[in-house]
Every structure is written in structure tokens, then in C-alpha cells.
Amino acid sequence: MKYLARKIGLYAFIAWAALTLNFLIPRLMPGDPVTLLLEGSQGAIDPAAKAAIAKAYGISDDPLPVQYVDYLRALAHGDLGTSISQFPVPVVDIISRALPWTLGLVGVATVVSFLLGTGLGVLLAWRRGTWSDHVLPALTFLNAIPYFWMALILVLVLSVHLGLFPNAGGYERILFPGWTPQFIGSILYHALLPAITIVLGSFAGWVLSMRNMTVTVLGEDYVSLAEAKGLPSRHVLLTYAARNAILPSITGFALSLGAVVGGSMLTEVIFNYPGVGYTLFSAVQAQDFPLMQGLFLIISLAVIAANLVADVAYVFLDPRTRQGA
């Protein structure tokens, strides 16, 4: 499992890099948050208040290494600081309230979109040279539509004009949160349109890459041999061609997660969906820097974890990486 050990090492390093980046950004960027905030308030604020704000950000005049140790120590205790806009709620609390919404919505939608796109990609590759080639430009167009604009249009058509879906929120406001069928139903109902947006916005990308990979693999000798063996076409396609073509797609899946998450965040904003993306948007609007950074950190760690999962899946799918296990 040398391959896996190395991957875990790499991701551990990346996670550390994300932590450090998160530490460095507010300290090294030209404008420090306190000044930015004070500019916003446009008034003379007395130094004591300024110091208090700076403390809230965890910014002090200590040398960087000392600050860094403090920062890591705070992180180890799960302390991401205190939100400014919702003072004095800890950032961790806000994030843990928002995270399940995003994991549910973005997680499920992304997996659905990947499966749908990959399946369709294999199909288009198999049927290449026919009408199916003409689907490609349409897919390219679909792939290029910004998520948030797609969300706007879908809201307009399906929700405002047709009234099929609610256009905001994660559940019916009048309901009391709980494990009631009514409440869960409301959650699913509210999640449907954002999920459709994310799937529509991202599946075309998977289709295109999977099609190209499969077409490339279809030219390999082992696929020709499978045909020469007289195996049924479906078998050749699935166990020989698609099985090999999916490998780079899995790596691609992991790497595109960042983009998908980014796009999904914008989708949440459109739908006022109470997830991480919307929270980040609000934090940015309110210049709530601690919350912004906490969210950045959590999102990064989540994507890093997802990458690790994809790499583990890869190990199971490609025997070659298991060499020297």
C-alpha cells in the first residue's frame, strides 16, 4: 500500500498547506482586515475598540511564529475564532449549522451528476460516428453556462412562472425542525431545484471527458481482442473499455470537485440555501473575516478529504497502484 501511504502523506501536507495559507492570508495581504473594517465604518474608532477587534481576529503584534503556534493551538481545540457579524457566536457553531445542508445538497448532486455524466459519456463513445456526435456541441454549451445564471433561469421558469418549486430556503419556515416526515419532505422539496441546477451545470463536463477517454480506450489492443473473443458488445464496452476509461475520470472527479464546490456555493446564494456557500456569501457581505476564513478552511479540508476518498477508490479500481502492497 505504498501508493496509498504516499497519497495520504501528500494530502496531509496539502491540508497543512491549507491551514498555513489560511493563517498567512490575513497577515500578508496588503490590506489588514481591521483597517478594512474601520474604513467601512468611516468614523473615528478609539484605539481600544480597534485592539478588541484585532483580538477577535486573532491578530496581534507578536512575531509571526508565535502567532502561528497560537493559531495552531486554537485550531487543535476546534477554535476558529468568533464571528463579527453574529457576535459573539463562535465561527465553529455557525459552520456546523451550515455544513450538513451543503454536504447533503452538493454531495448528493455531485455524485448524481458524476454517475449520470459518466454513463452518458460511455454511451456517446460507443455510438460515436452517429447522430450522437451532434450532442457534443450542445453539451459544450451546457458546460459553459455559469451555475448561478443557470440557477437564475431555472428559478425564473420553474419556480416563479410555473410555481413548481419553492425559490428560497432549505425548508418551509412554518415547520418546526425535527425528524418528522413533513419536515424531511420539505427539505427534499427545497433541495430539488438547487440539486437540479448543480447536476445540469456539471454533468456535461463528465460526459465530455468520459466520452473522450472511452473513445481513446476503444482503440486499445485489449478492446480489439475482446471483440475478437466474440464477447457481447455490452460486455466489451463495460468491462474492457469503460472499466479502463473511468480511471482518469476518477482522478478528474477529485480534481474538479473544487470547481463544483465553488459553483455550488454560488447556487446556494441564489436559492438562499442555508449551506456553507450562502454563509460564506453573507460573511463576505458583512466583512466577517473570521467566519470567511473558517469557512475557507472547512471547505478546503472537505475537498481534500474527498480527494483522498477518490484516490482510495482509485487504488481499488486500478490493480497497478497496488503493486508492492
Binding site: P30, G31, L255, G262, M265
Partner: peptide, 24 residues
């Protein structure tokens, strides 16, 4: 390679948001 991996895996949009948030 490691540097590339770091920038590849850390999601771009949130990083972008945080970075631009701090741009004076």
C-alpha cells in the same frame, strides 16, 4: 509537484473569495 498539488486540491473559488476579500 507538491506545490502544484496544493493549488490543485485547495478549491479555487473559496480561495479566490478569501483572497479578494482582503484585496484593499
Amino acid at each position: 509537484y507538491i506545490l502544484t498539488a496544493v493549488f490543485l486540491v485547495i478549491p479555487g473559488m473559496p480561495l479566490l473569495i478569501v483572497l479578494t476579500g482582503y484585496l484593499p
